[in-house]
Design a protein around this nucleic acid. Structure first.
Lengths: 210, 210
DNA sequence: GAAGTAGTTGACTATTTAGTAGAATTGATT
DNA sequence: AATCAATTCTACTAAATAGTCAACTACTTC
């Protein structure tokens, strides 16, 4: 009963884009409402605050991202290839973003995390949680690579943390430099960290058939 | 002639601390003035805007940082040891910050860069420049390590970019997680990226004597 | 088609914020 | 001790911003 609305969704889309293309602190509720084509009264009907909206928006967005990651990190793909695919995807995605917005925008999660972690506990917790999920995809890939013998990694959790720092660092760097070219090296860096030899990479590729 | 003042310095200190413990977008000119113990009239006497002040503050701060880096990356120290020292320093520094502020704060340059790069061209350029300086310290260390034969690195500039992304990623991660423990692994990650073997590390250490 | 619920609206208040003007003060220099 | 540039201070304006509210509208279900 009552009328139905997509204002909630419009607001979540708007806040994501504004944070990503700008920053959290710089986006106002008025701006969000204007971009969403929603009046402020409606904003407060659905959300308590900017932080509340942002948390909801990142939550909803995470569902989309999760599906992408599930596909990229599918267990049916040889582990090192998963990492390669992830980096390739990241490069292509950021290139597309750059041609759409005129700017490299990097990883919204990491940039927002760095900005608000000392001030907005709610958002910080959300972001920590999502980064931890990301880390787990990496950890599984590392563990699988170790199990299949293509690398030696006694502590997959630690390696995954390293890789995640590096990966996010690369994206953030690309954002600051407004240049995607550095992202071409991401996979190379990860493989170096894992001590992958050319032979191992070949073995990994063959594992697809085996 | 006329009177002398340290208001400029107090304002620069204040803005650095506020940005670092919070964020750029969240710190207001009133806050800066209050923390500096300076009236707003004086603020506008010395600076045109928050961005102007921040740029001046980061510039001044860079001079201090540069001296630290010159010491850590001294050519008289074996190249791999320089990297180890850099990571050790970073861990100690962040630990100290955490006990002083109750929070891990990471790298102010990188966090600010990620936050404002799409909005404040002046600051973005400053930060790009400083990150480039940082990269050069790393590049020299990598090149020296290659020259002395302890590693093989045909493209020291690219390796330095990788290391920088990783290093900054680690610091930002520490900030978001509010935990310094991950920083213990930074040097290990860098050495892995460089393909350092135990033997090479030993050779590097001996180079100090040679 | 009546009734009730879900959502919308615009107009409002109270704060916060950036930025300004000009008088007042300080201290170095002569 | 007089001068005058450098700095500070108070009080102000205008705009931006967060947040509220009661009246209104549209949909759904009975």
């Amino acid at each position: 009963m009552g009328r139905v609305s997509d204002a909630k969704e419009k607001l979540m889309e708007a806040v994501l884009e504004l944070i990503w293309t700008g920053s959290y602190g710089n986006t106002t509720i008025d701006q969000i409402c204007e971009r969403a084509g929603v009046k402020k009264g409606s904003f407060y009907y659905f959300f308590d605050s900017k932080a509340d909206l942002a948390a909801a928006a990142f939550d909803a967005n995470w569902q989309v991202r999760r599906a992408q990651l599930d596909s990229i990190f599918s267990s049916s793909i040889p582990p090192l290839e998963r990492l390669q695919k992830y980096c390739d995807f990241s490069y292509r995605f950021q290139s597309e973003i750059k041609s759409r917005f005129g700017k490299v925008l990097g990883c919204p999660l990491f940039a927002l995390g760095a900005e608000v972690c000392t001030q907005e506990a709610l958002l910080r917790n959300k972001i920590q949680e999502m980064l931890e999920y990301k880390r787990k995809y990496l950890e599984t890939a590392v563990r699988d690579a170790d199990a299949s013998g293509v690398i030696r990694a006694p502590d997959p959790a630690a390696k995954a943390r390293m890789i995640l720092s590096y990966y996010e660092g690369q994206l953030t760097h690309a954002r600051i430099q407004n240049d995607v070219e550095g992202l071409r090296d991401t996979a190379r860096g990860i493989f170096a960290m894992l001590g992958v030899k050319e032979k191992s990479a070949a073995a990994d590729r063959n594992a697809a058939v085996a």
